[in-house]
Structure formats: C-alpha cells, structure tokens
C-alpha cells in the first residue's frame, strides 16, 4: 500500500511539473459518465456501462483508456508538432501478437482474446433505448488481419492545455442493436463500428 501511494504521489508530482493530457469523451457536447442516461436529439437515449479502448501515443507507448478508471483518462504528456498530434487508435498487428503480457497488455484487463490471440481494441457495453424499447448491447471490437484491422493512425488537431476530445455520437447512434446486439468476432462489421469510433477523434 505504501509503495503504491508513493508511486501515485510521484506520478502526480511528475504530471504537475510536466503537464498531462486529459481525455474527454462526450455525447452531443455532454461529458460521458458510466451508468447514466443520455438523451439523443432524435429522442433515443443511451446508457453506457463499460467503455474501454487502446491508444498508442506518439511516444509509442500503449495506454488503455477505461472510463471506469479516472486515472486512465489522464494520459502522460506528449509533445506537439504544429498543433497536431499523431495517434494510433487500436494497436497494430505487431503489438497484437507481440506476446507481451505486462502493463497495459495484461490479460487481467479483460481485453485479451484468449482463443484468437490478439486484443479487443474497443469494448463497449450498455443499453440503447429506441422508440421506448430497451436494447442491451455488447461490442468487443478487434482483429488485426487485413482488411478488417481495427487500428487507425490519425493526425489530430490539438492545442497545448486542451483535453483530447472524443465525440461518441457517431459511434453510439450507429450501433446495430436490433440486428447484432453482440459482436465478439473480428470482421467487416467490427471494423465498421470501430471506424465510426475513430471518426469521433477531433
């Protein structure tokens, strides 16, 4: 416990000195929290119970962002090039199959696909209310084999001191909850949903 506290304290001190980047997820401008209903402009609403995804920072370090873990929303500082930053959303195939099992790669975080080596890059679970009816959904989006690899490199506009903003409305309003409330396999559909998510990065 003492060790852990010491570690957190020194980490905080580090960030205090060098700054850090906050990840902000939003639906129509409202910050996303778990276990809360969000009304969409079209009258539907959405309730998210789990939301986690992998990001590869410009420093090449891998982070797992988990909305249920506040600390994971604070990314270690990375530097800018002309007010843009090059991020990879979802690990590439080399990272997927590296065989590393430590740090963010730890299967403990529930992102490791045991029977089909590789990682889920985005896990999202919740309920979508459409025309008054509840549709529970669960999506494990991953896969590193082309053409359905869930890994996208993206240059994002970003200014020092601003949060890294991710808008989820495109992703959440296009979930195929009626036809495919669950996806646990790589493939075209997983790939499409993942793409919707990456388009929410500003």
């Amino acid at each position: 416990m003492f060790k852990f506290r010491f570690f957190t304290v020194s980490l905080l001190a580090f960030f205090f000195v060098f700054g850090q980047v906050k990840v902000e997820l939003s639906i129509h401008g409202v910050p996303v929290n778990l276990n809360q209903w969000y009304a969409q402009p079209n009258g539907d609403s959405v309730y998210v119970t789990e939301f986690k995804f992998y990001l590869v920072l410009p420093t090449d370090s891998l982070v797992l962002v988990d909305v249920s873990e506040q600390e994971s929303l604070q990314l270690p500082y990375f530097s800018l090039e002309d007010e843009t930053v090059l991020l990879r959303i979802g690990m590439d195939s080399v990272m997927n199959t590296s065989g590393r099992l430590d740090g963010p790669y730890d299967p403990l975080f529930g992102m490791y696909w045991a029977w089909n080596t590789g990682y889920t890059q985005l896990k999202c679970k919740g309920i979508l209310q459409l025309a008054g009816k509840h549709h529970p959904f669960e999506y494990h989006l991953g896969g590193y084999r082309s053409p359905h690899a869930t890994s996208v490199q993206k240059r994002i506009h970003w200014k020092e001191g601003q949060p890294l903003s991710i808008q989820l409305e495109r992703f959440l309003s296009n979930l195929p909850v009626r036809t495919q409330p669950k996806i646990m396999l790589p493939g075209a559909l997983a790939h499409q949903l993942f793409k919707n998510f990456t388009e929410g990065f500003q």
């Binding site: 065989g99 099992l101 299967p107 045991a114 029977w115 089909n116 080596t117």
Partner: peptide, 12 residues
C-alpha cells in the same frame, strides 16, 4: 490455430 503464443495460451 487461434492461439499464437504458448505464454498466453493458459488464459483460455
């Protein structure tokens, strides 16, 4: 052949 590494296999 879905499992690529013996190290990770036992998670299954």
């Amino acid at each position: 052949g879905g499992v690529l590494s013996l190290n990770g296999q036992a998670v299954n």
